[in-house]
Nucleic acid binder design. Structure first.
Length: 273
DNA sequence: CTTTTTCCCTGGACGC
DNA sequence: TGCGTCCAGGGAAAAA
C-alpha cells in the first residue's frame, strides 16, 4: 500500500519523464477515478496541459501544470503509475492512460479502484490540503515541541495518532508500526501519557522508518511497483509489520499482532512500552 | 472538537 | 472443485 516512501519513489522515478512534457491524449477508463468529477470532462481538460513540476505532499502526488492547475493523485491501496516506454501489454486493471508528447505513456493501474484523480484550479490546492494533512514528517517544520503540544490532550492510542495525516502526513499502517518499534513505544499508549523524551524518540522513529523505506524504494507486498515497474525491497527490512510469531530483532521476544484503530498492528510486547 | 464506525473495492487465503 | 467468509486498509462521511 503506497505510503510516503512508496509515493516518493514513484514521484522521483516519474519526475524526469514528466516535467516539461505535454499531455497529448488522456483516457480515463474507470469513472470512479475522478468522482465526483466527470471523467470525460476531466480527460478533455487535462489534454494540452504541460507539466511544470511533480511534487509530493503526504501520500498525494501533485502534478503541477504551467497553467497553474494541479492534478492531485492519491493511490490509496493498490494504485500505481507506470511509465510505458514502448508497446502496452494488456492490463485488466489499467484505469487511465496519459500519452505524452514524446510518444511515451503513463498508465494508471489500480486493482481495488480506491485511488482518486482530482483536477484543481489555481489556488485550490492549499486549502484542499490544509484540512486534510499536516506538515511533512521529514521536513524541518515537524518539531518535538509541536508534537508535544498537539498530543498533550489526545486520549487516542499512539497508533491511531501516528496514522493521523494531520499530525504525520504520509505515514500509513506499515511505517506506523515500524516507527513505534524504533521508538520502543507501545501502540496502545494514550497520546497524553507519553513524555516529551518519548515523543522525541517517536519523531526519530518515524523519520528513521520513512527514510529506510525511501532508501529501499518502498515495500512490495503484492501490488506496489515503482514507475519503472520495479518492486521495492523494504519488505525485507520489516522489524515488526507482518512478523507475528517471529522473534523481535531487538530483544528476541515473540512479535504479537492486535487490532488498533481498525488496523492490523504488530509490536513487541517486551520492549515496546 | 475528538473518537469511533461504516463504507468503498477486489483478490487471495482458508475452512469445509 | 467450489463456495462462503475473512482480511488487507486510506480516507470520506456519518455517527456517537
Amino acid at each position: 500500500m503506497p505510503e510516503l516512501p512508496e509515493v516518493e519513489t514513484i514521484r522521483a522515478g516519474l519526475e524526469p519523464h514528466l516535467v516539461g512534457r505535454t499531455f497529448e491524449h488522456v483516457e480515463i477508463a474507470d469513472p470512479r477515478l475522478t468522482r465526483p468529477q466527470d471523467p470525460v470532462e476531466i480527460a478533455a481538460e487535462l489534454t494540452g496541459e504541460t507539466v511544470e513540476a511533480l511534487d509530493r505532499r503526504g501520500k498525494y502526488l501533485v502534478v503541477r501544470f504551467e497553467s497553474g492547475r494541479v492534478l492531485l493523485i492519491h493511490l490509496r491501496m493498490t494504485g500505481s503509475l507506470l511509465l510505458l516506454q514502448n508497446g502496452t501489454a494488456e492490463d485488466a486493471y489499467r484505469r487511465a492512460v496519459v500519452r505524452l508528447d514524446n510518444r511515451s505513456d503513463v498508465a494508471y493501474r489500480d486493482v481495488r479502484r480506491f485511488g482518486t484523480w482530482l483536477l484543481l484550479e489555481p489556488g485550490e490546492l492549499e486549502p484542499y490540503l490544509a484540512t486534510r494533512i499536516g506538515v511533512e514528517p521529514l521536513g524541518r517544520s515537524l518539531t518535538v515541541t509541536s508534537v508535544v503540544d498537539r498530543l498533550a490532550k489526545r486520549k487516542a492510542p499512539l497508533k491511531a495518532l501516528v496514522l493521523d495525516q494531520r499530525l504525520f502526513a504520509g505515514v500509513g499502517n506499515i511505517y506506523a508500526d515500524e516507527a513505534l518499534w524504533w521508538a520502543r513505544l507501545h501502540p496502545l499508549r494514550p497520546g497524553h501519557e507519553v513524555s516529551r523524551q518519548e515523543l522525541r524518540a517517536l519523531v526519530k522513529g518515524i523519520r528513521r522508518a520513512l527514510r529506510l523505506g525511501i532508501a529501499r524504494q518502498g515495500a512490495t507486498l503484492r501490488d506496489y511497483r515503482g514507475a519503472d515497474g520495479a518492486e521495492g525491497a523494504m519488505q525485507t527490512e520489516f522489524r515488526v509489520y507482518g512478523q507475528a510469531g517471529k522473534p523481535c530483532p531487538r530483544c528476541g521476544h515473540e512479535i504479537e499482532k492486535t487490532r488498533v484503530a481498525g488496523r492490523g498492528t504488530w509490536y513487541c510486547p517486551s520492549c515496546q512500552h
